[in-house]
C-alpha cells in the first residue's frame, strides 16, 4: 500500500507498478498508486469519455484525491475490495501501511460513508464495508517482532481494531523470534555454571575457558527471556487466535529463496 520498494525487494524483482504482474505461476503482485486507482475507478464507474480525452480534468481529480480527506484512502481500499468483489484472485494479501495508520485505512469506507450522503462513492462504501466487515472474507494479520515497543504497539492495535472498527483480526505473527540457547531444565544448569564462574567457585582453568563464552551467551539468554515474557503478553492479548511464530532465519534476507523458507515455516505453523 505504501510502495517504497520493500515488496519488490522481497519478491526479488526490480519494481512494481499499479498494473498487476505475474511473479510466479498463480502469484501476482502490484503496488498501490492512488492516481492510477482513480483513473481505473473513473473508467469502470463513470464511463465518461471526457475523462480520457481531457487531461486537466484528470489532474483536478488527482488534486482532490490528494487533498480531500478520505478520498485517497478510499481509492486504495476501494481497489482492494474491488479485486475481492470481482474474484479476480482467490486471495488478496495486502502489505498495509505502518501500525499507526492501519486503523484509518481499514476504516476509511465507514468514515467516508458518514461524510458523503449521496453519490456513486456513497453507494460503493456500502459494498466495501460489507467485504471488510465480513470475517469470512477479510482479516487483519498483525505482524510484530518480540521486542518491547513493537509488542506494546501490537497490543494497542489489537485493542483499537476491536473497539473502533468492525474489521476482524485473523492472525497475530511474531516474526524474528530467537531460538533457545539452552532450553528447559538445562537453563538452570547453565545459570548455575555461569554464577560459579563469576564467583570463582570453579577451578581457574575451566573458568578461564568458560568466562567469555558464558558472558556472551548470557546476553542471548537474557534477550530470549525478555522475548518469552513479551510473547506471553502478546498471546494473552491475541486471545483464542493465538500467536504464530516465525523464527529468526540464518538465511540472509538478500538471498533469493527467503520467501520460500518463510512460507514453509508458516505452513508448518498453520497446520
Amino acid at each position: 500500500m505504501d510502495d517504497k520498494g520493500a515488496l519488490a525487494h522481497a519478491l526479488r524483482i526490480e519494481s512494481l507498478q499499479f498494473a498487476e504482474r505475474e511473479i510466479a505461476p498463480n502469484l501476482f503482485a502490484m503496488a498501490m498508486n492512488t492516481e492510477d486507482s482513480l483513473r481505473e475507478y473513473i473508467r469502470l464507474f463513470v464511463k465518461n469519455p471526457l475523462v480520457s480525452t481531457f487531461g486537466p480534468l484528470a489532474k483536478i481529480l488527482d488534486f482532490v484525491a490528494n487533498a480531500a480527506p478520505g478520498v485517497k484512502e478510499i481509492l486504495a481500499v476501494g481497489k482492494l475490495c474491488w479485486e475481492v468483489r470481482e474474484r479476480n484472485y482467490d486471495i488478496v494479501i495486502v502489505d498495509a501501511e505502518a501500525t499507526g495508520h492501519i486503523v484509518a485505512q481499514v476504516d476509511a469506507p465507514a468514515i467516508l460513508s458518514n461524510l458523503v450522503q449521496v453519490g456513486v462513492i456513497r453507494d460503493q462504501t456500502r459494498w466495501m464495508q460489507e467485504i471488510l466487515h465480513d470475517q469470512s472474507a477479510t482479516g487483519v494479520v498483525v505482524v510484530t517482532t518480540p521486542e518491547e515497543i513493537p509488542v506494546l504497539e501490537t497490543i494497542q492495535l489489537l485493542d483499537t481494531l476491536q473497539s473502533k472498527t468492525k474489521v476482524s483480526v485473523s492472525a497475530v505473527v511474531a516474526n524474528r523470534v530467537h531460538p533457545d540457547v539452552v532450553a528447559g531444565g538445562d537453563l538452570a544448569v547453565f545459570s548455575q555454571l555461569a554464577d560459579s564462574v563469576e564467583s570463582g567457585r570453579i577451578a581457574s582453568e575451566p573458568a578461564s575457558v568458560l568466562r567469555a563464552p558464558l558472558r556472551l551467551l548470557c546476553i542471548a539468554i537474557q534477550r530470549r527471556k525478555r522475548e518469552i515474557g513479551l510473547l506471553e503478553q502478546l498471546a494473552t492479548s491475541a486471545k483464542e487466535r493465538g500467536v504464530l511464530f516465525m523464527p529468526i532465519l540464518e538465511i540472509d534476507e538478500q538471498e533469493a529463496g527467503i520467501t520460500s523458507v518463510m512460507s514453509s515455516v508458516l505452513k508448518d505453523e498453520l497446520t
Binding site: F45, P56, L57, I60, L61, V64, A68, V118, G119, R122
Partner: peptide, 25 residues
Amino acid sequence: AAKPFFIVADRILGARFLSDITEFF
C-alpha cells in the same frame, strides 16, 4: 476546464460532498 470536472465529480462524490469539499478548500 472546471465544468467537466464538476459534472464528473458531482456524479462520483455527490453534490453535497463536493460542495463540502469546495467550502473546506
